[in-house]
Computed example of a mutant assay.
Amino acid sequence: MNATNIRPADVATVATPIGPFTVVAAPDGAVLGSGWTADPAELTSVIHATLRPTELRRRDSLGAITQAVLDYHAGDLTAIDTITVRQQSGEFLTHAWEVLRKVPAGEPVTYTEFAGLSGRPAATRAAANACARNAAALFVPCHRVLRIGGQLGGFRWGLDAKRWLLAHER
């Protein structure tokens, strides 16, 4: 592999009340993947192939990104809002992820409502797919989407984590 094919990324893990939280970030500081794991491979596997890093550089901190994660878990629910995220997919998923970033903490929506906010009210399954394919958990807060009636539905990082996040945001 020549040097032009290498896509490096930085990775850091911090302790949170839910467990270890790892972020994979591009050299320009955009979050490519994140979640409650200590294993970066769990994150790189869901990053779109065109963005997937070919080299990971372990860091103690990712600066503002790491601080936002710590601040969010400590109670500043808006700390994650200004962090840049980079995800790649088709037009609907990319748009849905942008919409999801605008769902306020403490105001979860149903999958049906999320589909409507994303401009496709009949596309509940597509909205659920946007949550399932989200590589940047927390920064793209798919935990804020619930089933009708308030049931939790799925969450890549487990229902206990989703439950904690929703309670934290109340």
Rank of each mutant, 00 (worst) to 15 (best):
G35T: 00
N134P: 00
A105P: 09
T37Q: 06
I83N: 09
I148A: 13
M1A: 13
R52P: 04
K102T: 11
V69A: 15
T50E: 13
N2P: 04
I80S: 13
D60T: 13
A15Y: 05
E91L: 13
V140N: 07
R59T: 02
Q88S: 06
G35E: 00
V109W: 03
W157R: 05
A115S: 09
A161S: 12
L56A: 11
A126R: 09
T82Q: 14
T22R: 04
G154P: 01
L165D: 14
R57L: 06
F114P: 02
G119D: 11
I80Y: 06
L51I: 12
C142H: 10
N5G: 08
N129K: 15
L93C: 13
R125A: 07
Q67C: 12
T112H: 14
V103K: 05
R120D: 09
A135H: 02
P40H: 07
T4R: 07
V23N: 02
D28N: 10
F155N: 14
E42V: 05
R163H: 10
L159Q: 13
P17F: 12
T16R: 04
N5Q: 11
H143G: 05
R125T: 13
R86T: 11
P104H: 10
G106R: 14
R125E: 10
V11R: 04
I65N: 02
F139H: 08
L100N: 01
A132C: 03
I80V: 09
A38W: 01
I148L: 09
L32P: 00
R101S: 04
A130Y: 06
R59W: 04
G29E: 05
Q88P: 00
A167D: 11
